[in-house]
């Protein structure tokens, strides 16, 4: 079941022109249409307030080389941010145990807006991934971000 789902992700991401080579700026532009995780994104604004965005879609992929990447679609990181962007995070470390993935990562430059987004380098990434749920915690630049989503077939 899981391998089939992974295969679907890979095909879908490839179809969307996703490349894992850091020099490639053909980033995902659309969420997987039918299957993805949907959840809530929370961003600590570092001023005692939080920005929440619901219905944030995410997908992940494990490459043949054993690297995990995930994409977050149409996300904002602050209320006043006038654009939503797709963010692609590649090179996440993971440990699999009984179908559960434990994620970690540091110093990962996400891809957004056509290329590497160094200003929002990801640090202290932790998270968990199962067939049913996807959770993440990381610092995006200086902003603490959490995400909690569940598997949905749209």
């Amino acid at each position: 079941m899981k391998s089939i789902r992974r295969f679907i992700y890979m095909v879908a991401l490839l179809a969307l022109g996703v490349g894992c080579d850091t020099g490639d700026n053909n980033l995902p532009t659309k969420p997987v249409e039918e299957e993805c995780y949907i959840g809530t994104l929370s961003v600590d604004q570092n001023d005692g307030t939080f920005y929440y965005q619901s219905n944030v879609k995410t997908t992940y992929e494990i490459s043949a080389e054993g690297r995990l990447s995930f994409a977050m679609y149409s996300v904002k990181f602050a209320e006043g941010m006038p654009i939503k962007l797709n963010m692609f995070v590649d090179g996440v470390e993971f440990i699999e145990e009984d179908g559960q993935y434990t994620l970690s990562g540091n110093g990962i430059v996400p891809y957004a807006m056509g290329g590497p987004f160094e200003k929002f380098t990801i640090t202290n990434l932790t998270g968990g991934l199962t067939e049913e749920s996807f959770s993440l915690e990381f610092l995006c630049g200086e902003y603490p971000v959490t995400y909690s989503g569940v598997w949905r077939t749209i």
Binding site: L27, P28, T29, K30, S74, P82, I83, K84, L85, N86, M87, F88, A112, M113, G114
Partner: peptide, 11 residues
């Protein structure tokens, strides 16, 4: 072009 970049302008 915005979609190609993976962004959506609110307006």
């Amino acid at each position: 072009m915005m979609a190609d970049l993976g962004i959506e302008l609110d307006s």
